[in-house]
Design a protein around this nucleic acid. Sequence first.
DNA 1: TATTGTTATACTCTATAACTATA
DNA 2: TATAGTTATAGAGTATAACAATA
Lengths: 146, 146
Amino acid sequence: MTSGDPDPTTETLMEELLRSTGLLRRRLRAEANPDELTWSQLAIVERLFRQGAATTADLARAEGVKPQSMGATLAGLERDGLVARTAHPTDGRQFLYALTEAGIAARAQHQLLKRAWLASALARLDEHEKESLRTALHVIRRLSET
Amino acid sequence: MTSGDPDPTTETLMEELLRSTGLLRRRLRAEANPDELTWSQLAIVERLFRQGAATTADLARAEGVKPQSMGATLAGLERDGLVARTAHPTDGRQFLYALTEAGIAARAQHQLLKRAWLASALARLDEHEKESLRTALHVIRRLSET
DNA sequence: TATTGTTATACTCTATAACTATA
DNA sequence: TATAGTTATAGAGTATAACAATA
């Protein structure tokens, strides 16, 4: 077999990428205060802020998760009073989720304080390092969409 | 306030990085067969293969998780017969975990088949793209260690 | 006293399956 | 029939807290 193990360094690369992003993810969670939004919640809040109301299915597609999973996340945000739903104007099956005043306030607060150490860590990256993250971002996205 | 919101594009960058790696992670898990090792398990199996026996605390430190969390992952591998423990020669509190024959076989199998679509996706990256992933890897690692 | 490991408990994120209501 | 959403259940991955055994 000439290409059964196509490129060992590429495999290692992927394992290392998952390992390091997992570490970053754990680190970010450990630094968060208990009352802060999780990253999943923040992603939805940001999306609703930018594009206005959306349905469960819309958000699920946009974030790449199953509708049931998105429903669970939205239920948490709704319970905390950060989003509210209204009936869809034409389709009785659907609901439109939108940020409440509290949701808008929570977003603004997170925009200001974010994760303290993350802000300081990012500040220490030079432009070249940021650029490499941006480039890698596109590659990772392409991988996910394959 | 002149620097309360230091660099919006940098914040976005981090959010996008977490979003895209989260997507990749979900994609990888969705593609895995039920009997395959998870990435967490595979990381431990690889590590034990490369460096031989290790204790719970060693592995926890190396992977950046709490000892209790590592204990849970090791318990799963032990239940499946892929790792086995022996008493530490000098410290009665510790155990040394090592791969069993089945563990070595499982690793070899994963080295061969890996995730099918991952292999094909990686094969389509050109050298420049791989290089950008490698560079980003170091940046992410630095961020995690800050 | 400090460290290693275990047990108990809980939370986040995500999934599948089965269901109801509506289109 | 197909789609939107809900409910129930499960599993991976992780954490904190409290404990026992050993150093």
